[in-house]
Simulated assay, not measured.
Amino acid sequence: MALVLSFFSFSQSATALTDEQKLISEVWRIVNRTYLDDSFNHQNWASVRQKILEKPLQNQQATYAAIQTMLKSLDDPFTRFLDPEQYRSLQVNTSGELTGVGLQIALNPETGKLEVVAPIAGSPAEKAGIQPRDRIVTIEGISTEKLTLDEAAARMRGPNGSIVTLVIEREGAPNREIQLTRSRIELNPVIAQLHKTEQGKSVGYLRLTQFNANAPMELAHAINSLEKKGADSYILDLRNNPGGLLQAGVEIARLWLPEGTIVYTVNRQGIQGSFEAFGSALTNDPLVILVNQGTASASEILAGALQDNGRATLVGETTFGKGLIQSLFELSDGSGLAVTIAKYETPQHHDINKIGIKPDKVVSSEPLTRDQVATKDDAQYQAALLLLQQQNVVVGAA
């Protein structure tokens, strides 16, 4: 997701409220003040709070369940409550460390089903052949229809070396049971290589797997290193990149774009903010970006920015289509709240939510093993190389 990290505290003046009621009121006020849809899913938001507060709240778990019920009425899978453990886990994830099976997941807003956005490169999930858009039917025999997004993620996490069993549903195929051994997953977000073509060109291949806090600095180092090695063009691979921090996406766009709008953000008042590129890019060499159905959120912000500004050509398949931005709020008891606060539009004001970004050159691809990515077996990568060769010929003829 495109995530903005925010930390707010709210005081509670109503001393008559219990601690449990205060936490519910805290959540209600954050949503009331920041949520993108000011109709709150066409309901009286104050009435929702009143009904929740009228019910007895015996303990913390009952309070958390009441908050989840309140948020569920918004019918927005991205606005969700995180208990203290889930909140800490999300903070760790965006910081660049993870232990688990290596799946980025989301609830499909239309079907409500738990979907795979993308497996993390080198993870147990990727090695088992799990693909973007696969649906997770059960986790350890528990139907995911009964689980929130964070409950599902929590059930897939566990001690290093332990086993979790999933049932996976894929379009046009029978359901499949998969056993995954949990492991510590490296979240170094950048893979950088210098590839030599048959025509003697030096292509800098950069694969970005997610937009965590380390991504802008790591990618800048990789570009500088490839420039010193003589790269004369670039392929940026955003396939199966589920996104991450909005600010990371903006900073990475500035590495490639000397000037221009990167993204517009639109809040519930319709007020548009924007992030701009300024200064100088690290390289002006030709750039092709690889995208597919697993390219989502902050990845789409980056791809859309460079496509709309004419800085890059997109090759592959239509992207995932997540154009909403969440902000993360820390609550008074150490739990957290993710709230959809805005939507984003590309520099040419395209709203891609549930639509995605169509590449300039559509190239479909069969599932690849990790060793096949960016090789002769990778049709999308080969199409990018051909496009760069054609661009270089045109430039040379000028």
Rank of each mutant, 00 (worst) to 15 (best):
P132L: 01
P119G: 06
G122R: 04
E115G: 09
N108K: 09
G102M: 06
A128K: 07
A118H: 06
A121H: 07
L114V: 04
I105Y: 01
V116F: 07
G129R: 03
G112L: 09
G102D: 03
P119N: 10
A128M: 11
I120F: 12
P124W: 06
A128D: 06
G129Y: 05
E110A: 15
P119I: 05
N108C: 09
A128F: 05
P132Y: 00
V117H: 00
E110N: 15
P109M: 10
L103T: 02
E110R: 13
L114Y: 04
A121V: 09
E126A: 15
G122L: 06
N108M: 08
E110K: 14
K113F: 11
E126T: 08
P132T: 01
V117G: 01
Q131S: 09
Q104L: 07
A128T: 05
L107A: 13
P119Q: 07
K127Q: 12
I120Q: 06
E126C: 10
A106M: 12
V117E: 05
L103V: 05
K113Y: 12
Q104M: 13
E115H: 13
L103H: 04
G129F: 02
K113A: 13
Q131A: 08
P124E: 07
A118E: 04
E126Q: 15
P109E: 11
P132F: 01
A106R: 14
L114C: 12
A128I: 10
L107V: 15
L107H: 12
A121M: 07
V116D: 01
I120W: 05
N108A: 11
K113E: 14
L114F: 04
G122D: 05
A128L: 09
K127Y: 07
L107M: 14
K127F: 12
V116A: 03
P109R: 11
G112Y: 12
G102H: 03
P124Q: 06
V116E: 02
P124D: 03
E115F: 13
L114R: 05
S123P: 07
T111W: 10
I120Y: 07
I120L: 15
A125D: 02
E110Q: 14
N108Y: 12
P109C: 13
P124C: 11
E110L: 13
A128S: 14
L114K: 02
A121S: 14
K127E: 10
K127R: 14
P124F: 08
T111P: 03
A125K: 01
I120T: 06
G112C: 11
